[in-house]
Design a protein around this nucleic acid. Structure first.
Length: 609
RNA sequence: GCCCCGUUAGCUCAGCUGGAUAGAGCAGCCGCUUCCUAAGCGGCAGGUCACAGGUUCGAAUCCUGUACGGGGUACCA
């Protein structure tokens, strides 16, 4: 009914650019280079090179070589022992100028690179996409709808909302970078019987809180007041069941379009959204569409009619349901009082999303506890014969547990109140400011930097592990900025931003280096690691798993920090000018990788801290 | 009861489309700053990859079962 729609544009940080081909696999390193070796092997042995491309791995020890090729697959196809095939490969001339040597080590053929040649070509490859390094066109022509954040109005954004919100935002960024068209939807919880209770509570106790004199929308504490009314209502309803009937009546009034009910609901929705927006702005979260459940109010009858028409709707225990399977409970379409449920609205939403966007995938970034609901929903879509049914995915994530009496439990803290997301952000920012002022007292604009570091640390801590893992909310850990943290990535990024700034003042130009001097093991490790970035992003999209990017970034930062500790980058001696230019070029590409990766995760990269 | 998810170092996790000696961070101990930001780097120590079978030339990774933990299980969202 009320469509807020298209209030925000999506992340524009990653315009798509043409890069490389399709995704190959996790163990893959540097697919263009592997493709060339695979092609050479295929030609020499007379086999299809395509399946070979994903076979490559990294030797356990650099002494063995720079790229490993296990011969087990070829062994099956050629019906010869892998050890023998490895030997044959070692004797071949592949005709690749950047491969200097092939040695057989048991069933492995290990390729050693001609360091100068390889470094030159690798650097060119990494540079080819300029500042959009990491982007690809792997998903070109495909549309992904992502349902994320989706909080209930009239409530605060609590710390556990961070999960759906940031995972979804990161996924949206990642899919866009991989070339997909993305529609990010905030499926606002703005409908349902709960609002009957709320309206009822407002009517009964509102005047006591002075709400008649000072309207809710003019009060900063409006949501807190509403929460109080709601809690009070629920407590009183325990002893007075007739209150629940009254609440149901209010929801029916709301559904029927009663003027007073509608006006109050609309006001609540309005200021809830405004409050959410403050936090979203802080987190850098943007949606393409904000569509509440209320939007589907007049679309549900159409879907229910279709269920009926196809003979799927049944009466059971006075409710209308769809029987979705023997081992799971039925999908509720209408309660016995005739009102609808959120599942009904979800079903209408599936239809609306399909009709509007013809998506290739529709992801629900919702906690794992709702697995059954989505299983039911998807099954109903299947039973309806909807083409989109198998494109629906529940991108489930684990629960956030709070510390309660020495242990960890779902939901609330020991004191029984929710931890507000804003309070967590504030706390992290305060800690970041303290550390910043201690490390770098003369820094310009410490507020902005502390904000980025603090908020970034909170975001990163939530996206470091695979999303299905439960997370224990531990404020101390979140604001610890050492080790595998958001601040570590920021700091690494900042360090070579500073290095590049300084080198520029000294007259060096990172664009001047061609890469031929990047010949140490550490150079090679970094180049190989950097080359993976586009396929890492593609895989993160494929699996809807932002932690793949997080983990990759930690690896890059760690490799760079090791490098940085061992090798002097800027050397002003004229005889080392070429090497300095090459190392600066490498550093510049690490910088771009970290910057883009942080952005994908929804973290603002800093240039100073 | 049934369904879903998890189980890898003291803690938090990576590795899971099968391949060479299972990797990080934190916590503990020992080092590193006349030189590009030490929110950093290096080292030591820490593991019957929950258990038992199976498939395979090869299993932390795939299959089956068991144990433990978490979640869900029709008129809330």
């Amino acid at each position: 009914m009320l469509r807020q729609g298209a209030v925000l544009r999506g992340c524009t940080a990653f315009p798509t650019i043409p890069v490389l081909g399709s995704f190959l696999g996790r163990k893959t390193r540097m697919r263009t280079f592997q493709r060339r070796i695979a092609a050479a092997i295929g030609a020499a042995l007379g086999v299809d090179p395509a399946p070979l491309e994903s076979q490559f791995s990294t030797p356990p020890d650099r002494k063995l070589g720079d790229l490993a090729f296990p011969c087990f697959l070829l062994s099956k196809e050629l019906k010869r022992a892998p050890v023998q095939i490895a030997g044959e490969l070692a004797a071949l001339d592949l005709g690749l100028e950047w491969v200097s040597e092939v040695t057989a080590a048991g069933p492995y053929a290990n390729f050693r690179f001609h360091r100068e040649q390889f470094a030159r070509q690798a650097l060119a490859e990494i540079r080819s996409s300029g500042d959009e390094f990491g982007c690809s066109e792997a998903g070109a022509g495909r549309t992904i709808v992502i349902d994320y954040s989706s909080p209930n109005i009239a409530k605060h954004l609590a710390v556990h909302h961070l999960r759906s919100t940031m995972l979804g935002q990161a996924m949206a960024n990642i899919f866009r970078a991989a070339g997909y068209t993305v529609v990010g939807v905030n499926h606002l919880g703005d409908w349902g019987t709960g609002f009957g209770k709320l309206l009822c509570a407002l009517e009964r106790y509102g005047s006591e809180d002075g709400l008649t004199e000072s309207p809710l929308s003019e009060r900063d504490d409006a949501i807190t007041v509403l929460n109080g009314l709601y809690t009070r209502f629920n407590n009183e309803a325990k002893d007075h069941p007739e209150l629940d009937d009254e609440a149901r009546a209010w929801f029916q009034r709301l559904e029927a379009g009663d003027e007073l009910a509608r006006a109050r609901w609309k006001e609540i929705r309005q200021f809830s959204l405004a409050r959410f927006q403050q936090v979203y702005d802080r987190l850098g979260v943007k949606f393409d569409e904000v569509i509440g459940e209320s939007f589907f109010e007049d679309r549900m009858p159409v879907v229910i009619a279709e269920l009926e028409e196809k003979g799927l709707l049944e009466e059971s225990e006075d409710a209308q349901v769809v029987m979705v399977g023997e081992d799971i409970p039925p999908f509720l379409v209408r309660k016995k009082d005739g009102t609808t449920l959120y599942g009904t609205r979800d079903l209408a939403a599936v239809k609306q999303r399909w009709d509007t966007w013809h998506f290739d995938r529709c992801l629900y970034v919702v906690d794992a506890g709702q697995g059954l609901h989505f299983r039911q929903l998807f099954t109903v879509a299947q039973m309806l014969g909807w083409e989109c049914a198998d494109r629906l995915e529940h991108s489930a994530f684990g629960v956030m547990r709070m510390q309660v009496d020495g242990g960890w439990a779902k939901g609330r803290t020991r004191e029984g109140h929710v931890v507000l997301l804003e309070d967590v952000l504030d706390h992290a920012v305060e800690k970041a400011r303290a550390v910043l002022l201690e490390k770098n007292p003369d820094i310009e604009d410490p507020d902005a930097i502390a904000e980025a570091v603090g908020v970034g640390a909170v975001i990163f801590s939530d996206m470091k592990a695979r999303r299905i893992k439960d997370v224990n909310f531990d404020l101390e850990k979140i604001v610890s900025f050492e080790g595998e943290t958001g601040a570590y990535l920021q700091n690494t990024h900042v360090r070579f931003c500073g290095l590049l700034r300084k080198s520029e003042r000294q007259g060096f130009d990172p664009a001047a280096g061609a890469g031929a001097a990047l010949t140490t093991d550490e150079d090679l490790t970094l180049l190989q690691e950097l080359l993976r970035f586009p396929e890492v992003v593609e895989r993160a999209a494929e699996e809807a798993e932002p932690s793949i990017v997080s983990q990759y970034l930690l690896g890059v930062a760690s490799a760079f920090n090791t490098y940085y500790a061992q090798h002097r980058v800027v050397d002003e001696a004229p005889e080392h000018a070429a090497r300095t230019a090459d190392r600066l070029a490498l550093v510049d590409r690490v910088r771009v990788t970290l910057r883009n990766g942080l952005r994908l995760l929804g973290i603002t990269p800093l240039e100073r801290m």
